[in-house]
Design a protein around this nucleic acid. Structure first.
Lengths: 204, 204
DNA sequence: GCTATGATAAATGTATACATTTTTAATTGA
DNA sequence: TCAATTAAAAATGTATACATTTATCATAGC
């Protein structure tokens, strides 16, 4: 397990509260490594929004920023329906089947931890997105999702929202199955908007 | 001047043709530094699309990929009008004046090098975008622009396109001045689409 | 008491040296 | 001759040591 993964996990778990300033030297000591891997990890985590520059020295754990959440979800609302629309003509029974399996898996297990639900949820969408064969667009969409992870964290969502979300997932899948690409894009846009609202609500 | 800047400039200038595989050791030797700053520079350049992973060892200078250009411009077409729309209500005479000054500056100097034209062009747009006060959205838009830089490079655009582009810039500015936000967004979307087409045409 | 300036400490940037991994090439065996 | 296995080389990952920059604090001057 790389230091990047360790540090990211610890940031997710809340070990370093927002506002904390981290120094290379400190981190190297704490994790028992030299500063070289620390530097690498910090640079990656800055790109993913887990850390931000703190003046000229050190990096800080950013505070939760509702405006950042709003921006990310606005972007996702515009890019993900586009990617899915590009994927739609290339979907086949196998891919749609895999997507349905993922949904069914989320449905069955009532006892899944929140982090697992989140992972399956993203697997469902990427399973469809990947079919587009558009690596550049896919990469940006993935990046935005990684930026969201900081906010989603390990916080559990309400069961109420989880139900709504699953209904939307199935509706999306059915629209795609009958080839109604525009309807699917519309559902997805609303789905992302709802996720954004739920997240903002949860954070405040 | 950091190694990152040097390396990026050399990639832009075509010193390393697409397909070239670069090793940390080689680069460190060539630039007369140790591998530490080389590693830092490589990681940043990978994030900006100037380099890509090459299996498990080394990085490669990516070949020009029309699909990547299409993806980037599709994204820009959806995100930049959004950002500008958010900025529109916050524009004032001072900002609009600065934007106009930049345009006039591009107009006057007929002898500007292509790279300078490109820089001024981007200054014009960011001058407007910045007013939105949406750093996250702005950062993603900037990142997409940096990804474009690899393709725009130092290649000069046709004077014909340059004229059209400037007309669109002025039309955009006027729409914003009279408060017609929707018209401005429409112009911007078409402006980006045209830039994308011109670039693809130029590359083939 | 407050600001300015300089000395000290701390943090980061970089070089060198070593450890680990991966690739390459060569040798062996069928 | 070709495939497989192993030894050598090369490239990357990481630790330690040093250089440079930035921050902190104490002291001097107003």
């Amino acid at each position: 397990m790389s230091l990047y993964q360790q540090l990211k996990a610890d940031l997710q778990s809340g070990r370093f509260p927002p506002g904390t300033v981290l120094k290379q030297t400190e981190l190297a000591e704490q994790y028992g490594v030299s500063r070289i891997p620390v530097r690498d990890a910090i640079q990656r985590l800055k790109n993913e929004g887990w850390l931000t520059d703190h003046g000229k020295r050190g990096v800080a754990v950013p505070r939760f920023d509702p405006l950042e959440v709003e921006d990310i979800y606005l972007m996702r609302m515009r890019l993900e329906p586009l990617l899915q629309t590009l994927a739609a003509p290339k979907l086949n029974a196998e891919i749609l089947g895999r997507a349905r399996d993922i949904l069914d898996g989320m449905e069955e297990e009532k006892t899944l931890p929140a982090s697992e639900i989140g992972a399956l949820n993203w697997q469902f969408h990427t399973c469809l997105y990947r079919a587009a064969g558009r690596p550049t667009l896919f990469a940006t969409v993935e990046q935005l999702h990684r930026q969201c992870e900081r906010y989603i964290g390990y916080q559990s969502r309400s069961l109420d929202y989880q139900h709504t979300s699953q209904r939307e997932h199935y509706a999306l899948l059915e629209a795609l199955q009958r080839g109604d690409t525009e309807e699917a894009a519309e559902i997805l846009e609303q789905h992302i908007a709802a996720a954004g609202r739920a997240l903002v609500k949860h954070l405040s």
